[in-house]
């Protein structure tokens, strides 16, 4: 089920990126990066549910902490890139000449 969700989200994201519209492209990147975060979680070998603290009794069976770290990094980087992209599009909007050519 989760695989299907990821596939649908990635294709929605790609479709929106390929549209000829600034705002849709931004939404496409948001959807695509979210979908990729879900893919990391789904591929992440999260087989156990115990928190990743080593207790004195056993060190087996705790959850893999790596996917969370990867997703956290990916979210932060993705958000930074998104902020830059919005700033560029705002600068483009201020520069009317491009929109005059289009319409």
């Amino acid at each position: 089920m989760i695989e299907l969700t990821c596939g649908i989200l990635v294709s929605i994201g790609m479709y929106l990126i390929l549209e000829n519209n600034f705002i849709r492209k931004v939404f496409g990147i948001v959807v695509l990066s979210t979908a990729i975060n879900i893919v990391i979680l789904a591929c992440g070998r999260l087989n156990h549910a115990t928190p990743a603290f080593i207790s004195s009794s056993s060190v087996n069976g705790f959850a893999n902490p790596l996917p969370q770290a990867l997703i956290l990094t990916a979210i932060v980087i993705g958000f930074g890139l998104l902020a830059f992209l919005c700033a560029v599009i705002k600068a483009l909007m201020a520069d009317h000449s491009i929109f005059k050519q289009k319409s």
Binding site: V10, I29, L32, S33, I36, I40, A42, C43, G44, L66
Partner: peptide
Amino acid sequence: IVGTLLMLLAIAFIYGI
């Protein structure tokens, strides 16, 4: 940005495999 997102997707798959 699209290039790096594709790269990240591939890295997720490689980690999964």
